[in-house]
Write a protein that binds this DNA or RNA. Sequence first.
RNA 1: GGGGCUGUAGCUCAAUUGGUUAGAGCGCCGGCCUGUCACGCCGGAGGUUGCGGGUUCGAGCCCCGUCAGCCUCGCCA
Length: 603
Amino acid sequence: MPLEYNKRTHDCGALRGSDVGKTVLLSGWVDNFRDHGGMVFIDLRDRGGITQLRFNPDTDPAAHGVARTLRSEYVICIRGEVVSRGTNVNPKMPTGEVEVAVHEIDLLSKSKTPPFQITDDVETNEDLRLEYRVLDLRRPRMRNAMMLRHKITKTIRDYFDRNGFLDIETPILCKSTPEGARDFLVPSRVHNGSFYALPQSPQIFKQLLMMAGLDRYMQVARCFRDEDQRADRQLEFTQIDLEMAFVQPEDVMRHVEACLAEVAQVALGLKVPLPMPRISYAEAMAKYGKDAPDIRYEMTIKDLSVFAAKTDFKVFREPLDAGGVVRCIVVPGGAAMTRKETDGLTEEIKGIGAGGLPLVKVAEEGGKVVLQTGIAKFLDAEPIKSELLSTSGAKPGDLIFFAAGSEANVCKWLAWLRGTVAERRGMIPKDTWAFCWVVDFPLFGWDDDSKNIFSMHHPFTSPKDEDLHLMHLDSPNPAPASDLLKVRAKAYDVVLNGVELGGGSIRIHRSDVQAKIFQLLGISPEEAKLKFEYLIEALQYGAPPHGGLALGLDRIVMLFGGFSSIREVIAFPKNAKAIDPLTKAPSEVSAEQLKELGIRLAP
RNA sequence: GGGGCUGUAGCUCAAUUGGUUAGAGCGCCGGCCUGUCACGCCGGAGGUUGCGGGUUCGAGCCCCGUCAGCCUCGCCA
C-alpha cells in the first residue's frame, strides 16, 4: 500500500533528540546520498531543513534496495522510526542528534541530473540560475531569502494594521501620465488606439483615498517602470505604499521608522535607536555628495573652492571661473596606497565623466609636513600648503583626492570615490546598520536643457510653510527661479547604509497652491486638467492635508538579507536586459492578437 | 546610447613570452565498501575554448567584428 504522503508528521528540519522512538512520515528531495555497500544514508531535504535517513539491509531489505537506486533531487516519501545517532551526532545539523531508520519508502518522482548542484557552496553563474530558477530556489540560501521576504512583509503589514491603516488595492490598468519614468503601455482591445499604463506607483490613487476620507492607507504594491535595469532596480518591483491624512512630515516619519525598527528586530535581532538621525539634503550633498548618505564611516567631502581660488593651478581655476567648485576627500592612511591603486581609480573615475583624478600624498620629512606625488608641485608652496592642510584636515600619512568641475559632477565623482575607496580599503564597519532621514529637499530643480524648473519629487509635493512666500502666491506672474530654487519641500527619504529605502512627502491640499505649482512648472491649466483632472477635481471638494511614503521592499529584504542584488530576493526576476531567462518574456505575439488590438508593427 | 569586466567539460576554475594530445576539483556513469554526513577507494565517459574572420609555421592566448551575461554612467526616486 503506498505511503500517505499527504499525512507528513514533520518537516525535515523538525526532529530532535526528544523525538526518539516516534514513528514519522517524511517527504522531500534527496539532497545527498552515501552508499556504503551495506548501510545507505540519504540526506532528505524539504523547506524545513535536512534529516538523515538510514537504510539497513539487514532489517529492511526492500527499502534498502530502493534507496540504492536514489539519485540527487529524487522525490521520496518514507516512514520510519526516529533513532538516536548515539556517538555519531552531527553538530553541524540542527537535526544532527537523530536519524530516521527507514522501514518503508515510496519513490514519488525521479529527477534528471540537475545542471548545477543544489548547494550554497558553489557560486553558479546567474544566467543559468535564472533559467533553472526552480532548482536555484531549492538552495537553502534562496529558500531563506524567500522566507525572510515573507517575514519582513508580514511584519510591515502587521505594524500598519495595528496602527489603523487599511490595506486597499489600487488599479493596475491606469491612465498614462508623462511624469517620471517611461510607462509600460497596455493596448486596449475595446478601444483600439488607446492604451492603459501600468502604475509607476499608486501615487495618485492613494491621495484620492485620503480625499475620500479613508484616513490611513497601506498596500504592498507592485510598481512598473520601463527604465534600464540595475543591481537594485527591476522593471517591476514592490513598494510598501502608505498614506495618511492630517499629518506633518514628522508623523509619517515616526511611523515609518518605528516600522523599520520592528523589521530590523525581526530580521536581524537588532535594536535600532529611535528617532533616526535627520540630515538635511544640503548637508548630505555637501558632506557625502549624494542624497542617500552612507554614514557608517567618515571621510566626508571638504569644500576647497575658497582655497583653490588662491592658486594658479589651471585644473582648479578653470572650473571655478566657469562657476564650478573644487572639493576633496581625505583618505586616512591613504599615503600607503600604491600607484597601481590610484591609477586604477583614475581610470575608473574617467569612466563616469571625470577628466582625471588629481591627488597628493601628505608626508613628514625632518619634522616638516610635505606634499608628494600627483599635483604636489602646484600646492607645496606656503601659505597654500598650510591652508590646504587646515581646510581639508589632512595629516601626514593621508592622501587627498581632488575633484573640480560643476557642483553636480563633483558631488557625483567624490561620492563614487568615497564609496569605492571605503569599500576597497575596508573602512566600512561590518554588521553596522546606519539609518537616517534626509529632509528639506528642494522642491524644484533646474533643468539646463529646457531652461526651466522641474519637480524634484512630483508636482503634488507641498512646499514647507516657511518657504511658501518664495513662491509669490498672490502674484499672477511666476516667481523668479532664484527664489524658487530656495523653496524646500515637505519631502523626506529614509536611507540605510547609503541606500535609499524609500521616500515620500506631504502633498498639496490647497488648490491655489497646486495651480501655482502647475503654472511654475509650465503646465497649462488645460494640460493639467487633461492629465490630472480627477485629482484637481477632488482637491476642490475638501481635501485634508495628507502625505505618505513608499518603501522599496526588494531593497529592504536585500539589505537585511545581506544580498548584493534585488534579483536574489525576487522569486522570478528579470535580468539586466529586461528578459526573464526562465519564461523568455518578452516574446513576440501572433498577428491575430495584434490585429485585435489594432496594432501594426513598424517595419 | 557610453564605459568597464567576463565567456575554456554539466558546474567552479587552471593552462609561462603564442608552442606537442587543453588540465584539476566537484558532478555524472560503472565497480567495491555496514556508521557515513563535502563518505572513501578503483575505473570510465565528457571539449566546435561563445560565434565569425584575420595575423602566424603554429592561436584558448594577439588583432577586428559579433553575440551573451554582469557592473556602471546616462536614464530612473
